[in-house]
Structure formats: C-alpha cells, structure tokens
Design a protein around this nucleic acid. Structure first.
Lengths: 190, 190
DNA sequence: AGTATTCGGTGACATTCGTCACGCCGGATT
DNA sequence: AATCCGGCGTGACGAATGTCACCGAATACT
C-alpha cells in the first residue's frame, strides 16, 4: 500500500514517470532490465532479497540506473552498507513527502543525496568495534539460540562461543548477550 | 512521509476530505476535537501514545468519530486490543492501496472492516495462554533485564520470577526467556 | 459443604551462562 | 629478528538461570 501510494504521488509530478513496481527484492533486477529506469527507489526490508543486495545487483548490471534507498530505520550501518553497495542516495521515510521528488531529481542529476544528520552519525560511530566472529555469534544469539546450538552451527567449542560473546558484551557495555544483540542491532552493527 | 502520501492519495477521492494530520498519538484527540472528522485513520506505532490508546480516548470522547486502524503488523493481539478499544476497522498496510478508500467508506457507513484472514487467525489463537504475571515478566525480559532487576521492579522474589518465566517458556515451547519473549511478541501476546 | 483446578508465590537443585587466566598464531612496529 | 599486538581458541570457576516439588488462596464444579 505504501509503495502504491508513493508511486501515485510521484506520478503526479510532471517530470517523473513510474515505470515499474515490484514487491520483492529478488524481482528488482528483472523489472529494471525490462523498464530501464533512470532511478530505482528501494526499501531495505523486502521479502526475497534485501534492498542493499538488490542495489548491488542493480549497479553491477545496470550502472546507468541510479539507486535511491528509502527506508524506515536510519541505522548507521544501513547507510554505510547501502553506500558500499553503490546506492547514490539514502532517504528516511519520516522525511517530509515533498523531499522525495526533490531527492529523486537530484539523484538523477548525479548528486549524492544523504540526510546530513544521519551521515554525521554514521561517521562518528564508524564500522563498529566488533570483530567478525563476534558479529556472527551475536547474530545467532539474537534469534534466541542457546550457546550449544551456536557452537554447533559455527563448528566451535562452547567455551569459545562464550568468550566471543563475553567480549561483545563488554564492548557494548551490556549485561548479557541478548541485550548486546539488541544494542548492536540498534546501531546497525549486526 | 507515508502519512502525507496516503493523505494526498485520499484527497484525490471525490467524497473524502482529509481535514487533519498529526504525527503523534497524544495529539490525536486535540486535533479531532478541532476538526470533527467522520473517521480517524490511526497507525499503532506512534510516538507519545500508541494508536490503540488513542482509539480508546477518541471513542470515549467523540463517539461520532469512527476509528480505523491502519498498521504494518498484523499481530492477532493488536487486532484484539484494537477492537476492545472501540476501533471500527483494522486494515493492514500491505493491502492494496485501493482498499483504503473502500474501507474508509464502509467504516463511515457503520460497517466493521477487518481482514477476514487476520480475524480467523485471531480467533483460533485466542487471547493467548499466558497469565498476567507471565506477560509482565516476559515483557520485562524482552528488554534484556536480568532476573534480579525484574524481581525488584515487580516487588517479587527472584524464585517467583524464575517460576513464571519457566511456565511461559514451557507454554511457548521455547528454550529460554528471550526466545519466549520473541515468540510471544510475534504472536501479539505481549 | 466438599473438591478440583488454576494462579501466585517460595526455596532447593542441576544446568547454563559469563568471566577469567592462559596459549596459539599472523601481521604490524621497531 | 625480536617484539608487540589483536583476534581466535580452550578449559576452569562462580554466578545467573530454568526446573522441580511444594504451599496457600481464590474460583469453579458437583
């Protein structure tokens, strides 16, 4: 519904045509090949394939198509990953609606459009202090798995898993792994 | 942005006028007193006051104003609580956009508008098997609190808290309280 | 009345979890 | 080359957690 509403809103603009809409990340590339848009407007949370991966596919195959991410959550990690995937802009859904058309025009013109507030936050927080293994175990913890399960799924000893978790917990200043997982997710470090 | 997009979409309809928009739950009542709408279209997740509480306020003070909830997550508990708060309709954001105007018209006409699929699910799952204390401790667990903290905040013994949690864990078929909290939240039993 | 069931509450016990001290390895610093 | 890291891995130990058996009170069933 949101997508349709935004599409018809954009359709009212003189200089913007909505040439395709899809509801799944893994349908983006095919639709873009067909419709050859100047800009692709992508959400991050989508079934099938997330918007960041879809952006990577798009820029790899159709470099002429700029990617503008429009998403609900302004987590710094999202912004960073989106930019690494080749997105040209990053806009939050709680921006005023008038921003959207403006952002699209600027994206087509080759500018990079990013909420400056969010960009500053992403830069200060950096890539996060977690090592690779720590991210892995935290991600598994977030699902509610027990330590033994995590150990098996990663082919590690239980003690090792506890150790990585302990490190992550201390780095994030939390009391247990679930709180740590929540904190990491909130900062986009997952 | 989403609200503005939906508003301008609805403004295109001949028989619908958007008379007010607010971005906070605790601003709903005042705006409604001012604008006297026939229908209030509310999201559930809002800053200040959630849409269900706002619906309760509205129906208490302005019974002439029907409430239609429009939300992202179709958790059965949400539907149940919305109906208990006096909402006349409950619509999901992933319904087609054309549904929205139709739903509004039917709501004004006095009908109750509910996704039948979702209604069936809410009926089968019922109110959930959790007792009140169990809900309380689960809710506290979801935030990542330790058991001692929960015990203090509820003025209970730690053993008691463990016991309620254990009951909830078994009822939900999970291995620890965090998994249980996630499961309960997913089913809208929180 | 009597009884059965459910919920809230407590403490004892075994398991799981988080922390610590330590060893190993590869890369950067000197 | 020697040294110093930082990440990865293991096991041991105390604390937090989940399970159990049990009790009292309120409610429903006969």
């Amino acid at each position: 519904m949101v997508r349709e509403a935004l599409a018809s809103l954009l359709g009212l603009e003189e200089d913007i045509d909505v040439v395709a809409q899809v509801d799944r990340g893994d349908a983006v590339l095919a639709a873009a090949r067909e419709a050859r848009p100047d800009v692709a407007l992508l959400d991050i949370e989508m079934p099938g394939l997330d918007g960041i991966q879809a952006a990577a596919e798009l820029t790899a195959e159709l470099p002429a198509c700029a990617v503008l991410i429009l998403t609900t959550f302004g987590r710094p990690g999202f912004l960073r990953r989106a930019m690494e995937s080749g997105a040209r802009g990053f806009l939050l859904k709680d921006a005023p609606a008038a921003e959207l058309a403006v952002a699209i025009r600027r994206t087509v013109a080759g500018e990079r459009v990013v909420d400056p507030n969010l960009a500053a936050q992403a830069l200060t927080e950096g890539k996060g202090p977690l090592s690779w293994r720590e991210r892995e175990v935290l991600e598994a913890s977030a699902a509610g798995s027990t330590i033994a399960e995590i150990a098996r799924s990663l082919h590690l000893s239980e003690g090792t898993v506890r150790n990585h978790l302990s490190a992550a917990i201390q780095k994030l200043g939390t009391r247990n792994r679930f709180e740590a997982a929540k904190a990491a997710e909130a900062k986009g470090w997952l």
